[in-house]
Design a protein around this nucleic acid. Structure first.
Ligand SMILES: [Mn+2]
Ligand SMILES: [Mn+2]
Ligand SMILES: [Zn+2]
Ligand SMILES: [Zn+2]
Lengths: 138, 138
DNA sequence: AAGTTAATGCACTTCCATTGCACTATAATT
DNA sequence: AATTATAGTGCAATGGAAGTGCATTAACTT
């Protein structure tokens, strides 16, 4: 039984061929990807299937969705040991305005945010926009 | 010459009737609003006009756009003295998962964010999702 | 008032997200 | 192993928000 199959089972979902392939594809990435990116990698598979696969992954803490401000949802595999379906993994995200890539900065946790009285925080989303290290040339 | 007219002229745009009305509508709000909200307030005006009016406001530092993670852009009047078309006004935003309202927490500035080497920050978006003071009942 | 420039309204388009339903594969039961 | 139940997949269609082209109208300049 493959490594990915085990992972999927552990997360409580059926390890279908499609899911294993999508998982593999996501694991290859060093940036967060949009659904259309995944579509391009699987021209034979249906958009809906990929869509639902990613949704399933999200609901089961395999990937997390990133709203990078472009209006297009991005997805990235969760870190090993991440429990973001229960408690949020509050790392920050970076969106490069030059190459349009979005990356997880998993080492950079979001600082504690103070709120006015009466406000209760459930989730925090912090996205920095700018020039990534590949594009700044340093 | 009305107050709003002066404001619009100061910001460098023509003070049309439509713009004054939209400005007035935005000034009434205590939360950030979507374009569809504005549409509902001006059933006689065309969507496109409202769309371009808000865009113009945004380009001229009259309103700022807020990406609250819902996928629907929200807009709010800038604070007096805000220069967000030149330099970002980095206050945080709160989106209530109960009443779906988005508010500017203009007093709560976004803390300095450290980035890995090579990354250059141009803009920061910080959105806290949770229960607002109206909904938490405290 | 005439001429110029900008704003508005209408129609149309694009893009991503999402759903319903039929079909197929997988797993469980007999 | 065959049957039944359950879950996944593919196709088609829909919805919602954002954006564009162009003709018309209003606002400003002279
Ligand atoms: Mn991430
Ligand atoms: Mn704001
Ligand atoms: Zn880049
Ligand atoms: Zn609320």
């Amino acid at each position: 039984m493959s490594d990915i199959t085990t992972t999927l089972k552990t997360k409580g979902i059926r390890p279908t061929a499609m899911r294993s392939l999508v998982y593999q594809e996501l694991a290859k990435q060093d940036t967060a990807v949009a659904l259309t990116d995944i579509e391009l990698a699987f021209t034979k598979a249906d958009r809906t299937t990929l869509y639902r696969t990613v949704k399933t992954f999200e609901e089961n803490g395999i990937v997390h969705q990133i709203d990078d401000g472009t209006g297009i949802s991005k997805y990235a595999l969760c870190e090993p040991g991440c429990n973001c379906e229960i408690e949020n993994d509050l790392h920050l995200h970076f969106h490069c305005s030059n190459c349009d890539k979005t990356v997880c900065l998993t080492e950079h946790k979001i600082p504690q945010i103070s709120l006015p009285d009466g406000y209760v925080a459930e989730d925090v989303n912090l996205v920095v926009k700018g020039i990534c290290s590949d594009c700044s040339g340093s």
